[in-house]
């Protein structure tokens, strides 16, 4: 019986992170897979979501409940008070969730739009480096300056699903993550199968051509990265609510920039179905390694933690995919617009 419980928990964990990584990698697919914008600062948008919960929502709650004291302990009291309310009234929890998501999307869009501005003058490589540097510096500040979101101490986040009994909560969050991921998938599928999506692909292949057709490239880039960052910040919000605290070191470059890129390569960039498949594969491998890390350590007699093996493994995997299957498991498909379809049928 205990084995079955463990199994269910494992599956739920896999599905939860599948949902999260689906959101982030789909947003990266919009920017990089379709738009060709090398957003090596993807982690920044996920972090933005976390900052909205830890830095903004918590401060609002502290102000609303009139809690005094230093930021870290005051927010745990404020979060506790909100949790008490949510147990009584589930709608408050859902309302807070939706408001936070809306705030995070706005903040994400602004951050994304601002961070892409230097690209007006830059080539891809400089752009990638700049985005990575911006994201890295913001990560550092939020980690070492404990006044923003608690930094290395971490800070509590309100339990928005407090009305659900403890043992079912993880399943509820899993459903939340998967449903959000699905909504974003459907939204992006529709969005990218439109004139906008085709212009975006055109931008990836040849910017000058798009310019020649009278499109404003900068506007297109700003729109794309703003949307991508807004979507990815939702993942940050869900992750923080799920883990019921914000810790600075959860939003590293490896976790939220490199892994989404790996998922894109693995699944097939420019193909949303492929990215979903890639996310599932990646999360499956990753959670299994994490779940069985002690067994792995024991089995292989490793004199170190299995997490290092995980890094080496994913690094090598990325190199192998880049080398032998850069188009990914599912290739990007040509677009069949209605006129082309009717032509093909005739």
């Amino acid at each position: 019986m205990e084995e079955v419980g463990k199994m269910v928990e494992l599956i739920s964990l896999i599905l939860f992170f599948f949902g999260l990584y689906m959101i982030v990698s789909l947003s990266l697919n919009l920017e990089f897979g379709y738009g060709g914008i090398p957003n090596f600062g993807k982690a920044l948008s996920v972090l933005t979501g976390a900052i909205i919960v830890g830095g903004i929502l918590n401060r609002l709650l502290i102000w609303y409940f009139g809690v005094s004291g230093d930021f870290i302990s005051a927010s745990s009291i404020a979060c506790y008070k909100l949790t008490e309310i949510i147990i009584q009234n589930p709608l408050v929890g859902l309302g807070i969730f939706l408001i936070t998501v809306a705030m995070a999307m706005i903040a994400g869009a602004i951050v994304g739009a601002l961070s892409i501005l230097p690209s007006a003058k830059l080539r891809e490589d400089y752009l990638g480096v700049t985005l990575l540097a911006i994201s890295e510096v913001v990560f550092f500040i939020t980690y070492y300056d404990v006044r923003i979101i608690g930094g290395y101490y971490g800070i509590s986040a309100p339990d928005i699903l407090a009305f659900i009994p403890g043992e079912y909560k993880i399943y509820a969050y899993t459903v939340l993550a998967i449903v959000t991921g699905l909504i974003i998938y459907l939204f992006l599928e529709r969005l990218l199968n439109s004139p906008y999506g085709r212009v975006l692909r055109g931008h990836r292949e040849n910017e000058d051509l798009i310019k020649a057709f009278g499109r404003d490239i900068m506007k297109l880039r700003i729109k794309t990265v703003a949307l991508g960052s807004a979507l990815a910040s939702i993942a940050g919000v869900i992750y923080v609510f799920y883990s019921s605290n914000v810790t600075g070191n959860a939003f590293t470059r490896v976790e939220w920039t490199f892994y989404p890129f790996l998922i894109l390569l693995l699944g097939g960039k420019g193909n949303n179905k492929g990215v979903v498949l890639g996310a599932l594969l990646f999360v499956l491998i990753r959670i299994l390694i994490e779940f069985y890390k002690f067994d792995i350590k024991e089995l292989l007699h490793l004199p170190f933690e299995a997490v290092w093996i995980q890094y080496i493994f994913f690094g090598i995997l990325a190199l192998l995919v880049l080398c032998y299957r850069p188009e990914g498991l599912l290739k990007e498909k040509p677009i069949y617009t209605p006129p082309i379809k009717s032509k093909l049928q005739n």
């Binding site: 990089f32 933690e305 997490v307 290092w308 995980q310 850069p326």
Partner: peptide
Amino acid sequence: KRKASIEMLMIATLAWDLILFGIIGAYSEI
């Protein structure tokens, strides 16, 4: 050799960085 784009090469150096990071971490514990 396979004429990969600059973005792909950048991802490759990120991957290499992660491999080195993993090796350093494991080695420090050994």
